[in-house]
Amino acid sequence: MKQDTEQQWVIQTKNLTKIYNSETIPVRAVDNVNLNIARGEFTALVGPSGSGKTTLLNLIGGLDQPTKGQIWVKEVELSSLKKKALIDFRLQNIGFVFQAYNLIPVLTAWENIEFVMLLQNRPAKERAQRVQQLLQETGLEAEANRRPAMLSGGQQQRVAVARALASKPQFILADEPTANLDSKTAESLLDMMAKLNKEENMTFIFSTHDQRVIQRARRVITLVDGAIVSDVPQIPYKSPNLKGFTGISYQ
């Protein structure tokens, strides 16, 4: 199967399916998803808990293997890559932001941000400049030498975003990035990501329950039981009025 070239999609999935074999019955976490995402999109994946948002994000990020179907990222079919090549692909192209921050606890904020660039073997001078720039942009200059344990939740998530941005990836995949943050911090983080999206045309895909994220997204994809039930590319976002959908409150 070849990638649809009618439009320059940077992420494309065809019949993407992920089935988990639990002890009793197989669970379709992602069910026959066909999805196209263009460069510079600011997209939210929404849906109730267990609807397959994180699984879809993991599949797009090459962290998980689909049971069926294909994923193209930048015209590269992910399942065609061997493990080593896939790790390298992620390193060069994708930035991850996790709900639980997942910073390296033994490294300082500076070192956490620098880490990905070290894996890319970037020169020391370039690394230092980029870290400095990201610390400025995320307002963490004063916290540069602090370890994650000494930072607040919001500061840790900003470090995580800065780390995801450090390698200048084309895509940022963020799994519930604001879930553990207070309103003010969440707004500040979203402002920062919206700015990067606008200024650097960076593609953002969020998995979220957070209304604040949904309100800012320019495209909202709703998943239920692993399938896309709604794909709304406009603002303001309106509820698809799903029965039993209690994960978020809609305006």
């Binding site: 790790i87 390193l91 606890p105 990905v116 894996l119 890319q120 390698s167």
Partner: peptide, 16 residues
């Protein structure tokens, strides 16, 4: 385990 998973997710090779 979680931290190691994160390291692999962000691009740390298995050799490293």
């Amino acid at each position: 385990v979680r931290e190691i998973g994160m390291l692999m997710a962000i691009g740390m090779s298995k050799l490293r």
